[in-house]
Design a protein around this nucleic acid. Sequence first.
DNA 1: ACACAGGATGTTATCGATGCCAATAGTGTG
DNA 2: CACACTATTGGCATCGATAACATCCTGTGT
Lengths: 357, 357
Amino acid sequence: MASATPRAGKTLTEKRSGGDGARQPGMTDVARLAGVSAQTVSRTLAGHPNVQPKTRAKVLAAVEQLGYRKNNAARVLSSGRSRTIGVVTLQTNFYSRANLTCGIETAAREAGYSVSTATTASLDTAAIEDAMTRLADQGVEGVILAVPLVHVSPRIEQLTRSVPTITVDGSRTPATEVVAVDQSLAARLATRHLIELGHENIWHVAGPGEWLDASSRCAGWRDTLEAEGLPVPPVLEGDWTPASGYRNGLILGKIPDVTAVFVASDEMAFGVIRALHELGRKVPEDISVVGVDDIDLAEYCSPSLTTVAQPFAEMGALAVAHLMRHVADPDAAPAPASVEPKLIVRASTGRVRGAAG
Amino acid sequence: MASATPRAGKTLTEKRSGGDGARQPGMTDVARLAGVSAQTVSRTLAGHPNVQPKTRAKVLAAVEQLGYRKNNAARVLSSGRSRTIGVVTLQTNFYSRANLTCGIETAAREAGYSVSTATTASLDTAAIEDAMTRLADQGVEGVILAVPLVHVSPRIEQLTRSVPTITVDGSRTPATEVVAVDQSLAARLATRHLIELGHENIWHVAGPGEWLDASSRCAGWRDTLEAEGLPVPPVLEGDWTPASGYRNGLILGKIPDVTAVFVASDEMAFGVIRALHELGRKVPEDISVVGVDDIDLAEYCSPSLTTVAQPFAEMGALAVAHLMRHVADPDAAPAPASVEPKLIVRASTGRVRGAAG
DNA sequence: ACACAGGATGTTATCGATGCCAATAGTGTG
DNA sequence: CACACTATTGGCATCGATAACATCCTGTGT
């Protein structure tokens, strides 16, 4: 009986052959063709310095000829490094998400890393745990948590301890660095702008309270008003959608004294403006509106939207940079980074009616 | 001399220990603790039926106790299946991209697959080749090409042959299935709607000519006009951005006879409307505007935008379904799928002025 | 009661690349 | 001219899980 060994060899062949007998060439195949050892092939491909140009050329030629491609799984298994980072985002198609992941992807690629995404439908601790677990199981070297964490569950805590994690615009966990836009500053810029235009009754349509950036913006708005000795009206809360902005706009438009609104996102601001329009209150003549994000459309609605721009792409790059540093040296001290937002004045804000020119 | 073997053992330990001596438990550790073989652990975790409940329980308990997690790289290497699919998209933050990837991610997860993304900055053949190569090197089992391919280079051809590929809304390659929205229908719906409102001079602001969906929409618009015996005005071309819509809107607004415009995307439509507004031409009283996409904001601008909705999320799911089928049976005959868009009438279109009521 | 089918579990080889160490070749110095 | 030293290259074990094969054990039919 030609039992175990030969049979295993045959099995191998069958496994690889997708039906046509061809097999992906391996490093050994390349090595044989080039007349060197597999090890030398590995070194050549890894860009190791100590390889003679002549040898390198031979190897590269063989690689070319066979159409050889490195097997990623094997490389990962053997080296223990996956060269992949994971990104956790919300499933919603917010402008910010699209831009952020874009910046992350680009920066990661430049650092020689791949990106694996895991989205979560909700801010549920369980859902986020699940997303992070999926990434961890995939063997990512680090994770960028682009969701606003409210509670940090023990499980998440544990995960962030075993996998370097950077939180973007979220709450800070003990083991996590945070890269964030200074949301409080964004709110102050917007509110101050309105105050400078003479407004004294400035309302706020906020994002969901569970979101850190929503509450930061709210706080920034409140602080600015209080610092100026202006009244702080009740907060209206939306869910980031234009529809929620619209609903709140309908409420706002019926309140006589309101002359300005700081809305926590451009999308909601669109809804607010729409509602005000329907109620016959003109923007900016009757009411000034400021948004946050500077989405592409902000400049092209009527009136064009005054807003606070957030450098999403740069944030993505920054997050990757921090993550790389953290991956390289897990013991490095966390260095939270914050990026400054920028006020962009357009046509949706104006001097309060009747105010001194 | 305790030479080679022991030393290698030590190396291992050092490699794993991230400084604290703890090591990720492996399958053998679990097996030892549960008092079974590694194979049984594997079977249990793979949900293999032939495992006694008692044994399964022991294994699961051991897994739990050690906090064991399967090593993905090892699994992939040994099984030859990565359970990962790749998605190639453009870096631009178009609404469609965000929604599509969302649908893909969700569907993939439900099918037990992970998603790895690769974005390309341009439609360059080289850039797309690069993105696909990155994914292929990562060992994805299939690829969803969510970019509109113009030319299919030999290299891409070759890649699609070795990796099951589904193209979304792109041109059809020999080895590729296509899942697409019927863009021509979208254009016909929009154009017919305008015709029914009495418009006879219907212009079109198209997307970039290299994009298949742009040219399909353009063709659908042209065909409909010709079928009705209406004049076919010159095509204005934009680049999907609101800014390009604005530029074309400025041109359109100065042409006296124009009473309706079919714009190839909502974002451009916003720009067009904005320009018309600035020129003092009212929408829809003077000019009716129809967009395509039904972005979230379409309903909340003034006037709310009549548009043709595209079921992006469903398309993503459909693409994944087709890909899974293709991965399971690479020899299956391609079955192109097409999804129907839906006209959504809002306030940016109206009867042509002076037309019979 | 015995043989046999079939379920449950263990054993072995292997996936493909890399890290460490050994071996060899080539260079410079006293 | 010998020795030390370094630049190159090869050999071996190994990462952790799985497929195929071998084995053992239990229940059932005649």
